[in-house]
Design a protein around this nucleic acid. Structure first.
Lengths: 338, 338
DNA sequence: CGGTATGGATGAAACGATTCACATCGCCGT
DNA sequence: ACGGCGATGTGAATCGTTTCATCCATACCG
């Protein structure tokens, strides 16, 4: 494999000069610059990132650790961070913890071994300090899709409790008095917060807590939603509305109930969460709480870049917690036609 | 940052021994092994991947370059390769060429700079040799989701022409005589092959080529599908069936037409391609040609691993081209209820 | 003409691991 | 007692960059 030394020999200059041509071209005379570039083209030389990293002490990559790469919500979030990172000349390595705390730790150690420049991650576990490995290694990180104490770290999240309330108020205002909450694993903060919001809305309305019927689902995907939908159909009295922890569940629920001849929204109003593209694309467009994925990704990447190199070096870095406001997007699945 | 030297000093051994503990523990006595591990824990030592890479000459990562990370088809494919790679102790770096040949080249050079161990990629451009950079750098690669000459490289693809034919025959057997083909950008091989299959089915049936009505779409996503659906509605006479290059387009088409009161499948039969999860999850489940994403991902990763280290070193490596058979998955969107 | 900036180029040290030729030691068989 | 052997440990060389102290002309100033 051809290295910088070969280029130097070919161009008849020293290795230091070649390095300068690559990194600080303005310091090198035109003529030599041309000679070096010619040599590079001739030999097909490509810089070795690993050697650069070794010298620099860290790589030129960010890590992004999400809970489900199959969920379009995270795909969009990833695209947001990728764009910002690319502008700063950084690459992004996206990994899938698949909602497993063990996998999460595995990837975090991988990130440390790789000496990533920074990490964005959506923690699975709700307790403990999953980011300890990063802390020890002095790798800047931003918590994504979950708010944490600003003494701990930067974070970018949306207000899930508010989101739950928006959904709840909407359903209650439409007269629903028996609302199912289809939810994923309870160890996820999001799952609990959204329920909490729903409960508050119920309380605001002066209704009893038994207005809410919990329907647990194994995972946060469509097939778990279908399953939950089947269980919902068996309930009696049947809820007249259902709020789901995310859109994938909602799409699954809607499909099962639709199949069974239940009319949506007339017999059953359905609300999802995240507002992924497929929510809008459903034949009965799904009412959803918009969770600004791309923006979370962009802002988080921005905070991370700031933490990596503070614009105002003397003041150092101050952790920031950004909380975005979710927004209810009302569509057909929750609003009977006149 | 603590390095192997610090560990060696702390444990009172040489650096070589620490390296042995890490890489060939069986060569080291129990006692020393324990001392070294104690030192590692005490100091919080973490191996530097970049240093290992520099020495080894290549990284322990594979690259996966796909055309749209937002398309669940590729998300599933990626999960397939990730599993196989993980078993071999390799990580995967997933990148998004976004159907742009320029971005594709950009990522390929990135891969070369990183000295990735191997690369899987779904080429955007249909002509030329997009993999030249990899060739020059001697990085093994497998072409994914597109068949190429086995003298050139390994590849894993599905037979898109056959897939198109399956869709076509299905529609023709149901009596459709005017079939729209909603397709993405024509520079993609898949787009052309699937149409070719449809055309063959039409020919087999002894019908004229004007049985097919082309409806171009800008991209291969839902919103382009909606747009195409609107144009389809304006056609007269209106096709009675529509075949789409992928499921995202089909979902978009189906939504627009459904909205306009066109009954699917009675007034308009719809077939997609890929059979992503959302095809099955649609309220009117979408008939689709199953494109085995996970399997493509797994097999391609397998071939790549073989190319990286041939099981039978004396025989060297022989490029292999795997072509999988697609399968028609008939659902409600193409079959009127009795 | 001596002194001194200045712009360009140099080459050695350092980054942190792996590897390999070599050293050491105890033990066995003759 | 000695050569040989296996098991264990050592430390220097190496990978390909970047960086920095240094050096060399050349031009400029007084």
């Amino acid at each position: 494999m051809v290295g910088i030394k070969d280029v130097a020999r070919q161009a008849g200059v020293s290795v230091g000069t070649v390095s300068n041509v690559l990194n600080r071209p303005e310091r090198v005379s035109h003529e030599i610059r041309a000679r070096v570039h010619a040599a590079i083209d001739l030999l097909g030389y490509v810089r070795s990132e690993s050697a650069r990293q070794l010298r620099a002490g860290h790589s030129r990559m960010l890590g992004l650790l999400v809970m489900d790469t199959g969920n379009p919500f995270f795909a969009v979030l990833a695209q947001g961070t990728e764009r910002v990172a690319a502008e700063a000349g950084l690459g992004v390595m996206v990994c899938n913890s698949a909602e497993s705390a063990a996998a999460e730790q595995g990837y975090l150690s991988l990130f440390v071994e790789q000496r990533l420049r920074g990490v964005l991650f959506a923690p699975v576990a709700s307790d403990g300090e999953p980011w300890q490995a990063l802390r020890r290694a002095n790798i800047p990180f931003v918590v994504v899709d979950r708010a944490v104490d600003t003494r701990t770290a930067c974070s970018v999240a949306a207000d899930d409790v508010l989101g739950g309330s928006l959904a709840g108020r909407h359903l209650l205002a439409a007269g629903h008095r028996r609302i199912a909450y289809v939810h994923g694993p309870g160890h996820l903060q999001q799952v609990r917060d959204r329920r909490e919001g729903l409960a508050r809305a119920v309380e605001e309305a002066g209704l009893g807590i038994d207005t809410i019927v919990d329907i647990p689902a194994e995972k946060l995907d469509v097939s778990a939603g279908r399953d939950a939908g089947a269980r919902l159909l068996g309930l009696s009295p049947r809820p007249t509305a259902v709020f789901c922890t995310n859109d994938l569940l909602a799409l699954g629920v809607m499909q099962t109930t639709f199949d069974a001849g239940v009319r949506v929204p007339d017999d059953l109003a359905v609300i999802g969460y995240d507002d992924i593209e497929f929510a809008e694309a459903s034949l009965i467009p799904l009412t959803s709480v918009r969770h600004p994925a791309a923006e979370i990704g962009r802002l988080a990447a921005g905070l991370l870049l700031q933490e990596i190199e503070p614009p105002d070096p003397e003041r150092g870095h101050q952790h920031t917690g950004i909380v975005l406001q979710p927004e209810l997007v009302v569509r057909r699945s929750s609003t009977p036609q006149p």
